[in-house]
Design a protein around this nucleic acid. Sequence first.
DNA 1: CAAAGCTGTATTATCGATCATACAGGTTCC
DNA 2: GGAACCTGTATGATCGATAATACAGCTTTG
Lengths: 264, 264
Amino acid sequence: MKSSVEPLKARRIYLLLRDRIVAGDLPPGGRLPGEPALAAEHAVSRVTVRRALDLLEKEGLVQRKAGSGTFVHDSRAVRPIVADLSNVLSHLIDMGRSTDVKLLSFGYVAPPEAIAESLGLKPGERVQRSVRVRLIDGEPFSYLTTHVPEWLGLTYSEAELAARPLLELIERSGVKTERATQAINATLAGPEAAAALDLEIGSPLLTLTRIVHDPSGRGVEHLHALYRPDRYSFHMDLVRIGDDGERRWSPALGRPRAPSKKGR
Amino acid sequence: MKSSVEPLKARRIYLLLRDRIVAGDLPPGGRLPGEPALAAEHAVSRVTVRRALDLLEKEGLVQRKAGSGTFVHDSRAVRPIVADLSNVLSHLIDMGRSTDVKLLSFGYVAPPEAIAESLGLKPGERVQRSVRVRLIDGEPFSYLTTHVPEWLGLTYSEAELAARPLLELIERSGVKTERATQAINATLAGPEAAAALDLEIGSPLLTLTRIVHDPSGRGVEHLHALYRPDRYSFHMDLVRIGDDGERRWSPALGRPRAPSKKGR
DNA sequence: CAAAGCTGTATTATCGATCATACAGGTTCC
DNA sequence: GGAACCTGTATGATCGATAATACAGCTTTG
C-alpha cells in the first residue's frame, strides 16, 4: 500500500503553531521556542521551520526580531469584523455603505443546475451572475458570487450593482424580500477566490450560502459568500429558554449589542 | 523577488474541480472532461491531474469508470448533518443522545491565558480540559475541546463525561446556564484534529467557540468545536423585519422547520 | 567586553513531486 | 469489427522541497 501523500511539512508545522497561538496556548507577546528547538522537536530541518514561521509572519500572527527571537503578535494587526447574527444581512447593507466593493465579473449566463433548482427557475431560464469583492480599509475580506433571475437582474445596471448593495436594488425593483434560508460552512480557497482575497490557494474560508425568496416563495437571489476567517466571523449571543425538560439555546434578539468598550 | 511557494499543483486542481462540483457547475451524474483535456487546460501533466482526481474519488465526490470516464457522484455518500441555528445547542444535546462520543483526553491543567480570561478565572485557578470526538454512524464529524472551571468539573466523573452531554452535567450540578456567546469561523485541520476526524492535515474545518455563563456572569464552560464541513453545517431560516427605512434579517424562531419535501 | 543565543543567509545533497512519454485494457459509437 | 475515446499503469528525466551544515550579524545576559 502506497503511503498517502504528505503535502508539505512546512505547512504541517505552520498549522501546529498557528493552532497553539489562536488557542492562546502561546500567549500574545510571548516568545516561542527558537528555530533550532522547533526543528528538533518536530524532527525537521531548520529551513522547514523557517518556512512555517514565514507563513505565520505573513499572516501577522508572529513578529520576528533578528538576534532576539520570534514573538506572538499581541495586537493582531487587522481585527476581524464581527457580524452579529441577529442582523446578518442588514449588517451587510451597512457594510455596503462603509466599505469598498469591486465588481469582478458581470453577465448573463445559463445557471448551474443546483442554482437553477434552488431559485426555482424554469428550464432554459437565464440568470445574472456577478462576482464582487468587498474590502475594508483597502483589504479584501469577502468574495461574493450572486445569481439573480434574468427578469430581476435587468432592472438595474452593472454600474448600479458596483455601487449599491444587491438587496437594495432588488427591493427597489418592487420585489418584496420576506424569507431567506442560509447555510454556514467552511472550504478551501480556490485559485480565483485566493487571488481576489489576497490569500494562498488552500487557505481556509468561511462560506455563507443564502437563498432569498419573495412572499410567493419565488427565489430572487442566490448568494455564495466566501469570507477570510482572519477578517470576518459570525458572532451571536444566546439565551437559554424553555422549561427544564426542554431547554434550548436561542439567539438573543432585539437587544442591541453593547458597544465595545475596548479603547483599541 | 522569489516567487511564492506553490504548495502542490495537484491540490490546486483538486480544489478547482471540487469547487465546480459543489457549486453545481458540474452537475451530479455528469461526466467531467477527460484527464488529457484537464491536463492541457491547466497546463499540467496528466499524472498530476490523476492525483487530483484521486483525492476527489477518495472523498466520494467523483466515481471513475475505466475506459468510460470520471463522473460526478450524484448521491453524495454522506449527507451533512444540518444544525438548525434556532436551537444550536439543544440540537447538540440531541446529538449527544443519538450519536457516539469518544473521550480522547481528560484532565486538570493550568488554562491558557485566553481561556482563563474568557471564563473570568482568578490567576492560578485550574480547569478541567477534555477532548472528545462525536461520531455519526461510526464516522467522526466533530472534535470538541472543552474547558470547565475546576470546582465545576469535580462534580462529575470522567466516565459520566464520556456518556452524557457536558451541558447536562453542568446543569445537574445546580449551576444555571442562562447566557452564552459564540463565534463561528473556519480553520485548517491541525495534526491531532485531522487524525481524530479522519482527514488530511490542512483540510478545512468549521469552528464554533462558545462561552457559557451562569446568571451571575461567571463563565462555566468554554467550548471549542471543530466540524467536518462535509458532514456538518449550520442552517437557518431568516425573516425580514422592520420598517422600510430599517429593514433587517432576523432568525426565524419558534416555527419548526418544514420537513424537507425532496424525495431523494 | 565576551559568551551565548537568536534570526538571516548561503551551500550542497537528497528525496519526493511533477513531467513527458509510452502502452495496456475497457468503453462507446459507427 | 474497428476507430476513437477513456482510465489504469509504468518508465526515466526534471524540478522543487527538504536536509545538513556553516557562517554572518544582532540581542541579551553576565
